[in-house]
Nucleic acid binder design. Structure first.
Length: 555
DNA sequence: AAGAAATGCTCCC
DNA sequence: TGGGAGCCCTTTCT
């Protein structure tokens, strides 16, 4: 830095007793001389500036670049106060002690010492038990309880990467869907509006449709009985129907027919689901309204209906798998709501499930449709065990790190569609864990009936966060979207729980696509297939053959 | 290799 | 009731 030549050598240049390489790099600077001559006095240490500013600023209003301040004091980058530091130390993140716990959001402790982090049951908050003795309880006990399996099956967790397309998309992945009939086909949507189609058993059978949407694809859905067409909703305000084979697209709904009239007027479509009985596609927008499209005539039916707070985003819609007229919605007004689709108006809401923050997703359980699971930005997964019971409070709240970050696709806990006990859920984790010196973000499998963490799935090739995860409806595999990449995970073996330490099978392939900016093809050049940037230590460990997945993690 | 950008929700007035 | 500042574990590119 130019201060090196200024007449009075500032005292901060002296190497502090515990300082490291920072002052070295300062003095080695050989910057521009002009700058140095013109503004030598601008560069001052923080403490000195406080004393001198009055004299310096007063004479004239000479146009000057903003003063550069340099301090070697330890300053927390989170709360900006001195005396402590927060951030990564190696692969371990040190919390700012002045902020509430990053996991459970309660003050008085940090993430490391959070009781929910070390709890056996992964931080379940039991809800009060209420015996309401209503007619609904009677119906539940009489008609439904017997159908719920008593013995819990062994959970099967897809725990190792089988194959993947690194940087398949040009922006982060926002949604995933398996093809309903053609085995091995994965559909993926991204933030840019592109839709990827990939046969994950064949590395090179993949396509990107780039002109269906102009921004975030929020949903990809197939209609029962029609495996040729995919339906997509997007933040460009449209619903489209696309032929999987040809890519030809029909526009079904456009909420911005007059184009751009400013951000305040732009409508976006988030939640989407199909009411099979009625043959309608339901979509919800960022103004609190529900729209429906008849899928036989491909025209909009009825008027939009306000189902959440006006001008708030409705991010999720789900039709009950057993009773399609039962609709579940959720959104930015901190509520999840149950509706009778035959009578939709804001007064006829069957139940409003309150949350402390934005609700990212709300799903009925996949088989009986009798449970509800929601993911909220207050770092809690909530489960209601029976939609016929008392819905005032959830049956359980499971503390889990899936915070909001504007740079990430919102996390959504999803049911395992193959689990007959309707208790296994999958969700990506936001905060990292130090796995043998490498910070990784696992994909968590949670038994929602107990809150127990069944498995935390990692792969050393995946250093980025995986917010989008989809379990296959029939096969024991999972697709995940992590940054711009898509991956397929399979189970190591049937009884994976008992043979944890066994050797991994080699991956089929991880195909790394070209960097798009300069056209330089760096694939296969170095053999590294990291998809994140925290790779330094990881690469070093990998070269030494140091890293095995069975290793215990540090904590 | 440090820095900037992208950009959604909350809080506060 | 709304506009604007501010923001804790990102990821990518320069």
């Amino acid at each position: 830095m130019p201060f090196a030549s200024s007449s009075s050598r500032p005292r901060f240049l002296r190497r502090a007793p515990d300082s490291d390489e920072e002052s070295e790099s300062s003095s080695s600077y050989s910057g521009e001389d002009d700058f140095e001559e013109d503004f030598p006095e601008e560069v001052v240490a923080e403490e000195e500036r406080k004393e001198d500013t009055a004299d310096e600023v007063a004479p004239g209003n000479r146009k000057r670049p903003p003063p550069i301040t340099i301090s070697l004091k330890k300053v927390c980058k989170v709360c900006k106060e001195a005396g402590h530091e927060a951030g990564f130390k190696g692969a371990t993140y040190i919390d700012c002690p002045r902020k509430p716990c990053f996991l459970c959001k309660m003050p008085g402790h940090t993430t490391m010492s959070c009781p929910h982090r070390i709890a056996m049951e992964h931080g379940v908050i039991p809800a009060p038990v209420r015996n309401t003795n209503t007619a609904l309880d009677y119906i539940f006990n009489r008609q439904l309880k017997a159908k719920i399996p008593k013995i819990k099956p062994v959970f099967v967790v897809p725990d190792q990467v089988d194959c993947g397309l690194i940087r398949f998309h040009s922006r982060r992945v926002t949604c995933l869907e398996f093809h309903p009939t053609k085995s091995n086909i994965l559909l993926s949507g991204d933030k840019k509006g592109q839709i990827g189609i990939w046969n994950y058993n064949k590395q090179h059978e993949r396509t990107i449709y780039g002109s269906i949407h102009s921004c975030i694809v929020n949903n990809i859905k197939f209609l029962p009985g029609n495996d040729a067409m995919l339906y997509t909703s997007s933040s460009d305000g449209t619903v489209s129907c696309t032929d999987v084979e040809t890519g030809t697209t029909t526009l079904l709904l456009d909420l911005n027919p007059d184009g751009w009239n400013g951000a305040a007027a732009w409508k976006m479509l988030y939640g989407m689901d199909v009411n099979i009985e009625k043959g309608v596609l339901l979509v919800a927008d960022n103004f609190g309204y529900l729209h429906s499209v008849d899928v036989r005539s491909n025209v909009q039916t009825g008027e939009p209906i306000l189902i959440h707070k006006k001008r708030s985003k409705v991010v999720g819609l789900h039709c009950n798998p057993v009773q399609p007229d039962l609709l579940l919605s959720c959104g930015n007004d901190h509520f999840a709501r149950i509706w009778d689709a035959r009578r939709l108006d804001i007064e006829s809401c069957l139940a409003s499930l309150a949350h402390r923050r934005v609700v990212n997703s709300a799903y009925f359980s996949p088989m009986t449709g009798n449970k509800i699971m929601t993911t909220s930005q207050d770092n809690r997964i909530r489960v209601w065990d029976s939609i016929f019971g008392n819905l005032e409070y959830p049956s359980r709240e499971i503390v889990h790190s899936h915070d909001f970050s504007r740079h990430l696709t919102p996390f959504r806990a999803e049911w395992d569609p193959k689990d007959t006990s309707e208790s296994l859920a999958v969700i990506g984790r936001y905060i990292s864990e130090n796995y043998d010196g490498v910070a990784l973000h696992p994909i968590d499998f949670i038994d929602t009936s107990t809150g127990k963490l069944v498995a935390e799935v990692i792969d050393t090739d995946v250093t980025t966060i995986s917010p989008v995860n989809k379990l296959h409806p029939q096969d024991y595999l999972m697709a995940s979207g992590s940054s711009r990449s898509v991956l397929i995970w399979k189970t190591r073996q049937e009884d994976w729980q008992t043979k944890k330490g066994q050797e991994r099978n080699p991956k089929q392939f991880i195909f790394r696509t070209e960097k798009k900016s300069n056209g330089k093809n760096d694939s296969d050049s170095d053999g590294d297939s990291d998809i994140g940037c925290k790779g330094k230590q990881y690469k070093a460990k990998k070269r030494q053959g140091h890293f095995t997945k069975g290793d215990s993690k540090k904590s």
